[in-house]
Simulated assay, not measured.
Amino acid sequence: MSALAVCAAVSLGPEFGADTRASRAQAGPPTTPKRRTVARPVPPRATCVMTNDTLAGQPFGAELTTEELLRAGARVVSRRCLANAHEKGQTDTILTLQHQGNQFEFYCMPEQRLLRRAVITNFRPAYGQRLRQTLDASTRQTGGSCAKVQIRDTERANNVSATFSEGKPAVARVEPYLD
């Protein structure tokens, strides 16, 4: 500061300092800039369990058949014979099919073939897309994202479970009830 400015400040006396302090008091405490809050993604819940008879009973929409899968290019991986627990002398078969990386196991009796288990890792085929829609609907019903989803029917007989990766189903297991 120049000597003239210092002399002017001193000549104003103590009131100059008081005025400066008073004006600071009226202005309030010094303000600090507000911090911005960054929205952090909510991590998915570990496991969501729900009961839904329709979703657990018909996860693919229409029930898949061995004929439909074979026509679509599935190949037979194995056949295993076993005695029927209810019909003496009847031999049934466990038929395992592979289709586009997905595996299906059917319990085959003379009068019908029932899906016993399915492991889906490729959701591109039509049945995989229907299953993905079912799983997406179930996660919406649970109110958010889940790392794993388990869907059961009321009797807890039919089960569908799925593991999610980045919000999309990665692996799904379908296990309908069989006696």
Rank of each mutant, 00 (worst) to 15 (best):
L12C: 14
L12R: 08
G13L: 14
P14D: 12
P14E: 03
E15S: 15
E15A: 15
G17S: 12
D19V: 15
D19P: 09
T20D: 02
T20F: 11
R21S: 04
R21Q: 10
A22R: 10
A25C: 10
G28T: 13
P29S: 12
P30W: 09
T31H: 03
T32A: 15
K34W: 12
R35Q: 15
R36L: 11
R36A: 08
T37P: 00
V38N: 01
A39S: 11
A39T: 07
V42S: 02
V42R: 08
P43E: 00
P44Y: 00
R45Y: 00
A46M: 11
A46P: 03
C48K: 02
C48V: 10
V49N: 12
M50S: 03
T51Y: 06
N52Y: 13
T54A: 15
A56C: 11
A56L: 03
A56S: 04
G57E: 00
Q58R: 13
F60C: 06
F60V: 01
A62P: 07
A62M: 03
L64V: 14
T65N: 04
T65I: 06
T66H: 02
T66Y: 05
E68N: 11
E68Q: 14
L69F: 02
L69Y: 00
L69M: 03
L70S: 08
L70K: 11
L70F: 00
R71A: 14
R71K: 09
A72S: 14
A72E: 12
G73E: 02
G73A: 05
R75Q: 12
R75C: 09
V76I: 15
V76T: 14
V76K: 02
V77R: 04
S78R: 09
S78V: 01
S78M: 04
R79Y: 06
R79Q: 09
R79E: 10
R80T: 13
C81V: 07
L82G: 05
A83V: 13
A83E: 00
A83F: 05
A83D: 10
N84P: 09
H86L: 05
E87G: 03
K88F: 05
G89A: 03
Q90T: 02
T91P: 01
I94P: 01
L95E: 11
T96P: 03
L97I: 06
Q98C: 09
Q98T: 07
H99D: 07
H99T: 06
H99S: 10
Q100W: 01
Q100F: 09
